[in-house]
Design a protein around this nucleic acid. Sequence first.
DNA 1: ATCAATAGGACTGATTAAGTTCTATATAGT
DNA 2: ACTATATAGAACTTAATCAGTCCTATTGAT
Lengths: 145, 145
Amino acid sequence: MLRISKLTDYATLLLMHMARAPFETHSARGLAQRSGLPPPVVAKLLKLLAREGLLTSQRGAAGGYGLARAPERISMAQILAAVEGPLAVTECALGRGVCDMEKGCATRPHWQLIGHALQVALDAVSLADMTVPRAATVRLQRLEK
Amino acid sequence: MLRISKLTDYATLLLMHMARAPFETHSARGLAQRSGLPPPVVAKLLKLLAREGLLTSQRGAAGGYGLARAPERISMAQILAAVEGPLAVTECALGRGVCDMEKGCATRPHWQLIGHALQVALDAVSLADMTVPRAATVRLQRLEK
DNA sequence: ATCAATAGGACTGATTAAGTTCTATATAGT
DNA sequence: ACTATATAGAACTTAATCAGTCCTATTGAT
Ligand code: FES
Ligand code: FES
């Protein structure tokens, strides 16, 4: 349940690779080779991440992608949001009129509450954490108290 | 992102209806009428929830479904798990050999960490909370500190 | 017996995710 | 200027999952 998409998993993987050399530019081809992912998928994802502001891009020969900011300042929540769109646990979490069963349904505010809790959990883990084993453990354990 | 399925939303809705009379038995037909959901969907969901141990069932005339335990002791995490299967944020979060890109991928333990945080957030909200506006607010706010 | 209820599974259609391909544009080096 | 190498963007196809329906069997009260 609550499975993230493969694309998001891939995106995280790519960003982790880039985080090992945070100030250099990386080409889509090179990242595809290093990650083992299919080149078209890598290209698609990098374009998306650049559009969403997580990466900077430089066109032309000797161009490539670079992290838009330090790995510590890129959260998993941001990566999720970039690839899968804004967090909305239920379809009808945002506005009225979207859902047929609004009458007789009092769940909306509660789902929003849960959504917020998830957001907090995802914000607590940064890309930098992901590259360092057990880095986020302490912070997350504090969340659970 | 991290959208729960409609079925899970429906299941929650049904359980909330039942929680208003926690000790009575409810028929699928009756719940379909009260909830406004299509009867076949309601029947399917109740069967599933009974199999998963969230509901008790009584066959035959005058039969029906009842909550397996008090609404306070049914968490949203349990409902999610019943309808959508066990929480696994990534496909390869559990075992080895599932995923092609295991070599060169160090994300697994971190995803497990995130998965655990989500689990905690979902465990903090009970079915009883869902029926009472703002009931879970305080508990969730404490989680965020 | 009969009627009202759940149990289980098979099946279909709709929606979304995943992956590929093609064309256009920008830039460095020669 | 030319060429090679890169990203930008969109359209398209296929695969997988979700949502919803339907049919048959079983159970139990009247
Ligand atoms: S099911 Fe959409 S508002 Fe509750
Ligand atoms: S992508 Fe599957 S192990 Fe990382």
